[in-house]
Design a protein around this nucleic acid. Structure first.
Lengths: 208, 208, 208, 208
DNA sequence: CATGAATGAGGATTCATTCAT
DNA sequence: GATGAATGAATCCTCATTCAT
């Protein structure tokens, strides 16, 4: 595939190949996890999807669990980026609606709905995952609260710093989570309806 | 069989024991599924939790998958009941907040947050589960729309039958889903904050 | 079913019921063994076919293996009877051809071809079965030799007592065995062809 | 995969090891099947006999049933070869007698008598096995008929193409089957007796 | 670096047998 | 006598992981 075997002459940074391999594995793993779930996806399938041998995966990841962790971190990163984008958007309802179901197979711009569910379920049991997700949640909540309470001049929404901003941030997050759930459960949801309803609601949520 | 000879006259309902055993198994399975997930929970563990031998489970359920299906149906039934209760409630925000995290281990009044996530994730792959959930979703949505669009005199909220009711029903469901996700991910969420925010939001969502 | 529960008044011989039950079980077991083989047939299936509970079978047979033994003895008895009939037959070829595939399901006049094969295979491993079959084989062989060597006036075929009778008895038995094998493997064999060929061959085998 | 990079030039034939492993497994399986029968032989036992772990077997065979099928095909191949040898033999009786019981454990020149019985019994239930055996039977029968009806100059026996050849081919096959049955049931049969009787009979069967 | 053969514990499921009722 | 619920060992098979090449 890529990674032209050795290419003597061009001295790539040490670890560049390792990084490439890791991401190849992660891409394959994500695909398998989406299709089968964390547990039902086998290392052999991941290896095949990555175009390499099972043994080689263990050069880059200590265990399947480590891959799962990495996938989760990746997904959380994606989510963070996505939420960051929303901050600057002029039309929040359109942005959120677009986020809904924007993730077809292979589209890796947003968090995958099945993975979102698996991650959240797994967080219930695995302390390491729980920690990662908890940290994500609290920073995201703080971020949103911050934006909501910032003055409009600074790109915020001017809500009182107290409970108004905190409560609405919480509701916003629930809304986003709920949309991910819907994405998994009703992939053919009427998006126009959703968008209109969202616009109306956000109008309320984002004004004092 | 021909052994209807015994106790003629007293019609014992068939399967009294069977029903008890089935529910014993389901209780054990639910506990294991919550603790480990559908796939990681072993039949041996379920059997032990149910206080019986692995083989016996198969007298009452044809396969592990059938148990999973039964648990899901049960959870959906619980969810339906819970949502039904909300209809008549005077204080919706309080009701929903109470619904949040009311489910400790062993509390079977509401749907379990981890199971909610597992079910939703599994629906992505298993067509049988997908069907069950899809049917649940559409009836619940229709129900809520109906209530929202009914006139206040009939216990409704008098929203226009058109997109207003439909859109808000959708948002309400997303909100409820989102709360389940939060319940799994942030079990120690500030409930007072949640309740206040919910009250404010519902006020908007439920008035024309 | 039959066995009218108790019928006080008619005093049947002690053990009469037991005998009836045993034969009911054996009939059911034979059917199951023919359909599934000794190992694949389960006690539950046999019990159901016999119209009784699995537990009850153990009142009449100590183990599944004992049932297998009993079935084998029964089949050997059938075979003995069948061969006895042939002795007196005027047209041996017709008789043998009729024996071929005379055993539809439920027809219990002749040995069942699948059971014949299973028995023979099992004799290879189980010493008890081996003994039963070996004894059967040697008496049948002696019988046939005896008939072949008896003078025609006494209903025999007048072969010399020595190797002629012994050798031809052996060949006859092989032929009969081979026909059972064919019955299992080619149930739709052309019987007219078989009969003609047999007639021709027997003509040779049974004359000095 | 893309790792055709290594050793370009030397074309090692693909699956040299795989072939060896497969035959190691088949050898072990055959031994176990002969000793215990298809169903009573466990994969663990086969694995141990093959000197490998149970899991490894599944790299080479998809299921136990596939192994059984392979063994059966192998046995049918052996039988075909054995019958082919007989065609050219000058002394058919000696050849057939030699075929009788030539198969000790480990001797793989001829079909194993216990397997012959198991196969035939199993053909009664498993359609796949039935098909394989049926095809074998019909080609072998046609072959034998062909030889019998060919003119002596061409190495045949000059029987009329009609029923004489067909009928005698059928009898020959029954005889061979019957000998396999005898081999299983009376392994210590007097071979001299058998040979003499066979010679006499074949003399009749193979002349017009 | 890369392979893929090999391991073996653990998965779901079946089934002969027992025993309280 | 008769039931059928209950057991638990044994079955086939899978899969994360390791390691000789």
């Amino acid at each position: 595939m890529d990674a032209a075997v050795s290419t003597p002459g061009v001295e790539r940074k040490p670890g560049a190949r390792a990084t490439a391999q890791r991401s190849r594995i992660l891409r394959a793993a994500q695909q398998c996890f989406v299709e089968k779930g964390f547990h039902a996806a086998g290392m052999a399938a991941i290896a095949q999807a990555a175009g390499m041998s099972p043994g080689l995966i263990y050069r880059y990841f200590k265990s399947k669990n480590e891959i799962i962790l990495a996938i989760i971190e990746q997904q959380l990163g994606l989510a963070r980026a996505r939420i960051g984008e929303l901050h600057g958007a002029e039309d929040l309802a359109a942005g959120i609606t677009r986020a809904f179901q924007a993730t077809g197979e292979g589209d890796e711009r947003g968090i995958s709905a099945p993975l979102f569910l698996e991650m959240s379920a797994e967080a219930t049991r695995d302390p390491q995952i729980a920690t990662a997700i908890r940290e994500f949640d609290s920073t995201v909540r703080a971020d949103i609260e911050h934006v909501l309470s910032r003055s409009p001049k600074q790109g915020g929404y001017g809500l009182t710093a107290g409970s108004a901003a905190a409560g609405r941030a919480l509701l916003l997050i629930c809304l986003l989570d709920g949309l991910k759930v819907r994405e998994a459960r009703e992939p053919h949801l009427d998006r126009k309806l959703l968008r209109a309803a969202l616009a109306e609601l956000l109008n309320e949520l984002l004004t004092p």
